[in-house]
Design a protein around this nucleic acid. Sequence first.
DNA 1: CTAAACTGTCATTTC
DNA 2: TTGAAATGACAGTTT
Length: 768
Amino acid sequence: MWTVEAVSHVGLEGLDWVSCTFRAMLSLKKYLTEGLLQFTILLSLIGVRVDVDTYLTSQLPPLREIILGPSSAYTQTQFHNLRNTLDGYGIHPKSIDLDNYFTARRLLNQVRALDRFQVPTTEVNAWLVHRDPEGSVSGSQPSSGLALESSSGLQDVTGPDNGVRESETEQGFSEDLEDLGAVAPPVSGDLTKEDIDLIDILWRQDIDLGAGREIFDYSHRQKEQDVDKELRDGAEQEDTWPGEGAEALARNLLVDGETGESFPAQFPADISSITEAVPSESEPPGLQNNLLSPLLTGTESPFDLEQQWQDLMSIMEMQAMEVNTSTSEILYNAPPGDPLNTNYSLAPNTPINQNVSLHQASLGGCSQDFSLFSLEVESLPVASSSTLLPLVPSNSTSLNSTFGSTNLAGLFFPPQLNGTANDTASPELPDPLGGLLDEAMLDEISLMDLAIEEGFNPVQASQLEEEFDSDSGLSLDSSHSPSSLSSSEGSSSSSSSSSSSASSSASSSASSSFSEEGAVGYSSDSETLDLEEAEGAVGYQPEYSKFCRMSYQDPSQLSCLPYLEHVGHNHTYNMAPSALDSADLPPPSTLKKGSKEKQADFLDKQMSRDEHRARAMKIPFTNDKIINLPVEEFNELLSKYQLSEAQLSLIRDIRRRGKNKMAAQNCRKRKLDTILNLERDVEDLQRDKARLLREKVEFLRSLRQMKQKVQSLYQEVFGRLRDENGRPYSPSQYALQYAGDGSVLLIPRALADQQARRQERKPKDRRK
DNA sequence: CTAAACTGTCATTTC
DNA sequence: TTGAAATGACAGTTT
């Protein structure tokens, strides 16, 4: 259904575009916007990171999410870090894994950067400067094909605001660097103005999305929330324990969104200052768009684009679906009204065809793994004996070709392909972007091979992205933890189901280990417990979503976060009861005192109520153990310590609640699975029903044809029969009867009627 | 600000 | 009989 909607949507857009082709400015901008978007998403889908997203304005916040899924925040963080790494700016010294990762990827990214598609910033800006004298009047009334290029914000670019903006940009950037604890001067020799702008734009876009870089750092977000909370009601403290210095520290220290580095900040947080430094944030699209891309304006509805790209993602999902079912799906989607309607199987033809066009337009040649699509495309005409058949050959050839002008035209002219003129081949369509985008795209496509050689399969990545709802193409590691794989269960009928189970289970070890071990500072064997937890208890751990809601499904990746890396590797704490109190206190004299305190503070915020209670009651072991230990070991553990009645009661409550919590989670998961399974069953049954109905229609049709054939043969034979006088028999008096042995007898009509009646009764009698 | 979704908890039932 | 699991219901929190 969505496919039809998506295609029709694109088709409408396309018609609109066609009608406005030569009026052009708005249309061209729209065209370019869509084109860039499609281009970007397409490449993102196949694993080539083109940061056109960067150049899109804040009006398109969902884009990143659509491309990368909910994990995009993490990817974004990576990207910032990547740029920082590439540009020589400071990365957090503690994030060794991250550094290794980026070191490993640096070459590829540098190579990519060489050929990076950079239409919007420098080149276009310069071009706009040239256009300024003549086209600065207004962008809304383009009179020629060229004038239309002058976007509405041209004045702003070259006007006084530009200088202001640049200075502000640099100011903001230097602030950024300061915030990052940068080791390089704000404008180093390696950094071009373009780079600065790019970074600025990236940053700005992040802010556009509602947050600074900090948004990608959960610790920081959490800390911010906590700090805010503390500021709001400082008396709320439920459980206080020694080490309040951390909180005091938290008031003055903020964690950098990318590096995790602490830095002093005046309240309110740095976001506000950033926003002040970048005044275009709050301004209407004009200036901003100029900065980002003069080709883009605010005319495009984000929702439409979002819809389109969600549809695109859905198409990618469809790629993973079983292709053989397409026919029955078609039947299923057809209006089930009259099964005898001969149009029954033909009804969805139009959507099908549009669907094919969309595939070509959006996905053609994007991967070598396209056999599914071509299969589908080629199999569709079988089911749809329609006038749209001639389209198929061109489509299949296009599918097999690489990105060229043809496919680009298909990419950027989906409207025409999907519109009424389905047969019109794309090559003769005007392609103003042709050369420009061709090269860029081809370059990126060629670079895609590098990515593949790197062990990164874009198709797999996109599928993984769908399955696990995480791990964007540039995630650190596409491998998932064993627990996530093992617990993704066969019961998961749909992607959502599998994603929930996988993500939750994958996260269980990470979340619990961090929240417990990191926060409390004891329990050296929480990992084994976590494994048990993940395997034995279905592994649905909601703390995960609290802890790193952003993207992390793979616990191994957590180590790449600086502030988590410290925690994750912190196995130095032991569970000795005597060490508890000292562990609770932040280590007084360490080099990383500040960060440790901060982490303790942060992780403290992550603790559940029971954990706080346990800490308050000085329970000498982790809630993890309390909850997950078998009864014997649990009792054994209790016997080791001399606990007060209150402590024992609390421990029992914690155990009960913990067990019940997991039970509730399992229960809900089970419920959800049941619902999903039922849903799938219903779908299957409906599919079967549709298939059976179709077969019935076929049988009835063939039966009718055979009857007609028999009737005509009967009449022919009967008409040739002559009596002894050479006259034909009267049909009213005689009839032909088929004998069991295949012979045909001519008998009187009355006798034939009698026998017919008998034969009619017999089945009825049998039924009775 | 509100509705919906999510999550934790309790009470009770089931195994 | 007891403990653990399952589940409905409710409340608090987040989106």
